[in-house]
Amino acid sequence: MLWDSDSPAERKQYTDLVLAHFDPSLPVIDIGCGNGTYTRWLATLFPTVLGIDVSAGAVARATREARDIQNCSFTVLDATKADAGDLLLEQMGPANVFVRGVFHVLKPGKQAALAANLKTVVGKTGRVFLAETNFPGNSLDYLAGLGATSDHVPSQLQRALENLPRPGRFGARERRSVFSETDWRVIADGPVNIDVVPMNPAGQLQRVPGYFALMAGAHLPTAEPNLTHNHPPLH
């Protein structure tokens, strides 16, 4: 899978932020978990982690690959459905949420629906951490940056184009339109590197410019004792 890079360098960008701002007494929900690569990583940091994905095949694979990990589980769920937030809240209680590479493939209506469900899930104590691709060029530039040419498309990229919606960009502007200031407070945001499965003959690391945001419900107090504020851009 194109996005399943399992990159320690990318995870390292996120570790300090989630450890500093995710309340460890709350479960963590990995939205759009795919085969569970990041769910398994989160399970090394937090006591209880649930991965959800709309694909039954992805969840089945994730379950197999995490069969020896006791503190993570998986379930099939479309997180953009109207009742998904209520279902997760009933199952898990208030939770922290991790989202990597989901919003940039959703249309605006689905993005808004997912954000509304996340608001339900995090309640008064949870946090949302998201990381999304934010490529500055057009779609052709984006594909070329991933290795596509006029007469060749790498196999991993071809499979992604066949099975997923066309990727877009999701940066600060898009976040502001989806996560309103009325409902959300941004704790930290900025640039980040999204690593993809290498598609060059040498197997060299390939990165896509991205954007991260760490958010809480707007009803929460501004002060957060013992937590880091205004985190510098991730590199």
Results as ranks from 00 to 15, higher is better:
Gly203Phe: 02
Ala213Asp: 05
Lys81Ile: 00
Glu174Cys: 04
Ser139Gly: 06
Leu26Asp: 10
Ser5Asp: 08
Ser25Val: 10
Val59Ile: 12
Arg166Cys: 03
Gln13Trp: 07
Gln111Asn: 12
Phe170Gln: 05
Arg11Gly: 04
Pro8Asp: 08
Thr120Met: 02
Gly147Cys: 05
Ala66Asp: 04
Glu162Tyr: 01
Gly171Ala: 06
Ile29Ser: 05
Ala58Pro: 00
Leu17Ala: 15
Val76Ser: 10
Arg169Glu: 07
Leu2Lys: 11
Ser155Thr: 13
Ser155Trp: 05
Leu157Asn: 14
Ala188Asp: 09
Ala160Asp: 15
Leu146Asp: 14
Gly34Asn: 02
Glu162Ile: 00
Leu157Thr: 14
Val105Leu: 04
Lys81Val: 01
Ala160Glu: 14
Tyr142Val: 02
His219Asn: 10
Arg166His: 13
Gly32Val: 03
Val97Glu: 11
Asp83Ala: 12
Val197Leu: 06
Leu234His: 08
Ala62Arg: 03
Ser180Val: 01
Gly171His: 07
Lys81Pro: 00
Gly168Cys: 04
Ser150Cys: 03
Ala66Lys: 06
Cys72Met: 05
Gln204Arg: 13
Ala56His: 07
Arg176Ile: 00
Ile31Cys: 09
Asp189His: 11
Thr63Arg: 13
Gln156Arg: 14
Leu50Asp: 06
Phe179Lys: 05
Asp6Val: 04
Asp195Ile: 00
Arg173Thr: 14
Phe46Asp: 09
Thr222Ser: 14
Val105Ser: 11
Val59Lys: 11
Ala82His: 12
Gly123Trp: 02
Thr37His: 04
Arg175His: 09
Gly123Ala: 04
Asp4Trp: 03
Ile29Asp: 05
Ala148Glu: 13
Leu227Val: 05
Leu214Met: 11
Met199Phe: 00
Val59Asp: 10
Tyr14Leu: 11
Asp4Lys: 09
Leu130Thr: 12
Pro225Cys: 06
Gly126Pro: 06
Asn71Thr: 09
Tyr142Gln: 14
Ala58Phe: 07
Phe129Met: 13
Glu181Asn: 15
Val102Asn: 07
Asp141Leu: 01
Ala148His: 04
Asp195Arg: 04
